[in-house]
């Protein structure tokens, strides 16, 4: 069952068309990720669902009710902001209790709900502190707590982890997934980080310049990107998009995409030889190396476990897993069916 339906949503700021005829359904209890480069309209779309922006045209339907003219506070949702937006003059306890007090919930019930939420997020030990006395990770937990304490059926996240360091970000990714699983609420999560998108989302919506380019499960988007933009945006290290000639394939009017992990500089079963290449640079990623090669003036990235003896300037054979090659139309940049 769809919990949210967006129908023909358009939004313009001055002369800038930020959202162009967006149509999207979000299922109940789904974890949907909106991803795209800066300025693609993902945050505006989220804020439109929250009621913080009004669409110029189209309908926002939440739980079967058209909410275009419903105030944000009456939409029965919570939002976690990139800046955390904690009230600096209130203690952590009062930050969590704020929405419940406004709803005139009894003091005993407020205390019960705040303590339950604090226990769930392991923030009981600093309930008396003010936000400025907390670390970035702790603030993020409090911001989550403030959203969860209302027990909303829908939580919106606007790039909530972008201010955290890599280690904390990974921890909080797991934490947010745990919350989603336990609370069984619908989540819409905005990020520009494709790793967050693919690791967290049940489905991913890839946006560009105010339009939805592709909506699908992370694996399908990774394996079958609809065009070269999606192919390039999802996946790290970035996909190789090649034109001209590759693997004895004459590419008239087509471009091909091949992910770095489907190329090898050592022979391996299932891989075909595709000529030779020169190593320009080797990036050590820990368990794997990223080899930057040149073949006929075309730059190619290869991701594989370190090869002993491989060094910069060396001429090496290049192998490809041919069935993983994705073909795109050179003009439209759209994926061609196999």
């Amino acid at each position: 069952m769809n919990y949210i339906e967006l129908k023909n949503i358009s939004k313009k700021f001055s002369n800038n068309q930020v959202l162009k005829n967006i149509n999207l359904n979000v299922k109940s209890s789904e974890f949907l990720v909106l991803v795209g480069p800066s300025g693609c309209g993902k945050s505006t779309l989220l804020r439109t669902i929250a009621g913080l922006e009004t669409p110029d045209s189209g309908d926002v339907i939440i739980a079967g009710v058209r909410v275009n003219s419903v105030q944000p506070q009456d939409r029965n949702l919570a939002m976690v902001f990139q800046s955390y937006a904690l009230y600096p003059h209130l203690s952590v306890y009062d930050n969590l209790a704020f929405s419940l007090k406004l709803k005139k919930v009894s003091d005993t019930e407020i205390k019960k709900q705040v303590l339950e939420t604090a226990h769930f997020l392991q923030i009981e030990s600093f309930l008396d502190r003010k936000p400025k006395a907390l670390s970035g990770g702790q603030r993020q937990r409090v911001a989550l707590g403030r959203a969860l304490v209302k027990r909303p059926p829908l939580i919106l996240f606007d790039e909530p982890l972008s201010n955290l360091d890599a280690h904390l970000r990974q921890q909080m990714r797991l934490e947010i997934k745990r919350i989603h699983q336990q609370m069984n609420c619908t989540v819409i999560y905005v990020t520009h980080d494709q790793v967050e998108a693919t690791t967290m989302g049940d489905r991913i919506v890839v946006m560009k310049q105010g339009e939805i380019i592709q909506v699908d499960q992370p694996t399908k988007i990774y394996e079958s990107p609809q065009n070269t933009f999606v192919a390039g945006f999802i996946g790290s290290p970035e996909i190789n998009i090649l034109s001209g000639e590759f693997n004895n394939l004459k590419m008239n009017n087509i471009e091909i995409g091949i992910r770095p992990e489907y190329l090898r500089i050592q022979e391996k079963a299932g891989y075909q030889n595709t000529g030779t290449a020169v190593i320009n640079y080797i990036e050590n990623l820990g368990s794997h190396n990223l080899y930057h090669l040149t073949q006929n003036d075309v730059k190619i990235r290869v991701l594989q476990s370190p090869v002993e003896g491989a060094s910069v300037g060396q001429k090496i054979p290049l192998y490809v897993k041919a069935e993983k090659i994705i073909r795109f139309d050179a003009q439209t940049k759209m994926r061609l069916q196999d």
Partner: peptide, 18 residues
């Protein structure tokens, strides 16, 4: 003052005056 604070308060249930 960041506008996020006011938007967070709106979503928490405040009226504009609150």
């Amino acid at each position: 003052l960041p506008i996020d604070l006011e938007e967070a308060a709106l979503l928490d249930g405040c009226s504009k005056w609150q």
